[in-house]
Design a protein around this nucleic acid. Sequence first.
DNA 1: TTAATATTGTTGTATATACAAATAGGGTAA
DNA 2: TTACCCTATTTGTATATACAACAATATTAA
Lengths: 253, 253
Amino acid sequence: MQGEIVDKNSILPIYYQLFKHFEKQIRGKQLQPGDALPTEMEIAARFGISRMTVRRAISELVSAGMVYTQKGKGTFVASPRLDSVVFNLNNFYDEIRQKGMKPHSELLEARIIKADEKLGRRLGIEVNTRCLYFRIVITADGEPLAYETKYTVYAKRTPILESELKDPSLSTLAAAHSDATPSSSKKVLMVSKTTEEEAQVLGVSPGTPVFLMIQTIFDDDSKIIAWGKSLYRGDRYKLTSYEGWNVEDIKNS
Amino acid sequence: MQGEIVDKNSILPIYYQLFKHFEKQIRGKQLQPGDALPTEMEIAARFGISRMTVRRAISELVSAGMVYTQKGKGTFVASPRLDSVVFNLNNFYDEIRQKGMKPHSELLEARIIKADEKLGRRLGIEVNTRCLYFRIVITADGEPLAYETKYTVYAKRTPILESELKDPSLSTLAAAHSDATPSSSKKVLMVSKTTEEEAQVLGVSPGTPVFLMIQTIFDDDSKIIAWGKSLYRGDRYKLTSYEGWNVEDIKNS
DNA sequence: TTAATATTGTTGTATATACAAATAGGGTAA
DNA sequence: TTACCCTATTTGTATATACAACAATATTAA
């Protein structure tokens, strides 16, 4: 009886056992991409459980990206997605701390400005609209690591808090000072050579390659509410991405 | 009636409306990290819906990382998660094609070699183990975009197929020629200046900043089975990442 | 033949119910 | 006071049911 796929007397939930069953089938290639799973009713009948429990298991498989469902058609094994890479980029502070260093962010400039033509275009606003302007340098043990420039519309006229100067999150800024709620963001990562000014702030020689990230924050109506530019020192920073089933094992490789 | 938070006559599912309601509350800081949501029964009574529907909404919030639940205690607003960024890096071919250009990969070198000390260390194998060695340049409309160097252990001694030279996927190579199955991968993205040789292959002047990606493929036992280095031209390539709920709207921004 | 219609099968949404399992608080006995 | 137990609260699991929405096929009508 204990060899059964679904054991109703197990400590483990039925939906979890069923999830594991299909996970094994898919990973072991008994079920291949494009193959249809049995219908929910069939699975329920096959294992003597209710359809809702089957749905719970399938919902977990969907979350894991292993299958997809089509209303009126069925449930199918998904193709493995090897094309997207997950990099951790933010939480600079935690990341620096994790390496045993002391993070610090220094405010170079913080002003309320009126948007010129260029900024107006970037933020999608009228020229002369009041905006917040920040320039921040983030250091680890005193050594500059990142240089950030941020703009957001200044609608609420709430004071700028000390804590905001510590938190380098652009979406936090937008939430606090624009009159809209951040909903989505777009980030573009490029490589660049440092200019004279950037090199001086980062403490490197001009022309040193750096990561350049442009970030745009949108509200519910897909209107731009904040814009930011971040430079990360290429000689001190790298992005790591892990993918697969035994990620914990390979992190120290 | 249409101002109500949950509209039973709406086309949108109730659980989705409820999900959106709490999402707004959390993003708008009316509900802050650590705050408890009303109990499932309270929410159900408040909106005149069933507890299972409330649970569906909460389950979506959990998936989105916005709340967490504790059995016997309640549901609480989560701290904003580390902002991980999803970049598309592979599927070079499709990406180039999408831009209306014609991709092509040219094989510069393909040899079976014996691992020297350095490669042995990289692949975690004995010196003199037989390995496959590839050098490929990927072009779009004839212009070089990426330069890749790949190594994998050559255990199966199966012939190298023409199709493999077209497919730049390191894990495909590893699957075909090593005697293990690729299970996980690690990718590290850095910036670099091109050397003389790299600059020549990529058709840029030496010192041009480029993306440098080191990729390692592991098998089930977390043993390294392939290693690759890719250079992407920084002046022609950038990584874009979208996050949020109205991603489709902002892609063209 | 072709187009419209009906039927059947499948997943999606929503409800009602029952009990299990973890948590927190209060009361009781030593 | 301290330890223990009991109870109420809250989320977790599982079932049964009903109908909606979509897809594909079969049937019918022109």
